[in-house]
C-alpha cells in the first residue's frame, strides 16, 4: 500500500460521503424550483474523480487546459441556450 493507494482510498470515501449526503438531502422538502441544487454534490464528486482517479493535477499542462476548455464550453452551451427560455415573455410580466 503506497501513497497512491492511500489517496485513492480517501477519494473513494469522500465520494461515498458526498453520495450519501446527496441521497439524504434529496428527502428534505425542497421546493420544486430549487431542487436542481441537488446536482451540486454531484459536481463536487465529479471534481473529486477528475482530480483523484484521473490525476488531473499531475497531467500534462495541455490536458489541464482541455479539461478546463470542456467545462468552459459546456457553460457556454448551457448558459446561452437557457437565456432564451428564461427571458421568453410567454406572458408579458407586470413589474
Amino acid at each position: 500500500m503506497n501513497a497512491r493507494h492511500r489517496s485513492d482510498l480517501l477519494i473513494w470515501l469522500g465520494l461515498l460521503l458526498a453520495a450519501a449526503l446527496e441521497f439524504g438531502v434529496s428527502f428534505l422538502a425542497i421546493p420544486q424550483g430549487v431542487r436542481p441544487i441537488l446536482i451540486l454534490p454531484s459536481i463536487g464528486m465529479a471534481v473529486l474523480v477528475a482530480l483523484g482517479f484521473m490525476r488531473l493535477l499531475t497531467a500534462p499542462d495541455i490536458a489541464k487546459s482541455f479539461a478546463i476548455g470542456g467545462i468552459f464550453w459546456l457553460t457556454v452551451l448551457l448558459g446561452l441556450a437557457m437565456t432564451d427560455p428564461m427571458t421568453r415573455a410567454v406572458y408579458a410580466v407586470i413589474g
Binding site: 482541455f66 479539461a67 470542456g70 464550453w73
Partner: peptide, 26 residues
C-alpha cells in the same frame, strides 16, 4: 494522455447537449 483528455472534453459536450435538453424541458 492529452489526446484522451481532448476526447473527453468532446464527450463533455456530447452529454452536455443532453443536459441542455433536460434543463429546457424541465
Amino acid at each position: 494522455l492529452s489526446g484522451m483528455w481532448l476526447f473527453l472534453a468532446s464527450e463533455v459536450l456530447f452529454f452536455g447537449g443532453l443536459i441542455v435538453a433536460w434543463t429546457f424541458c424541465r
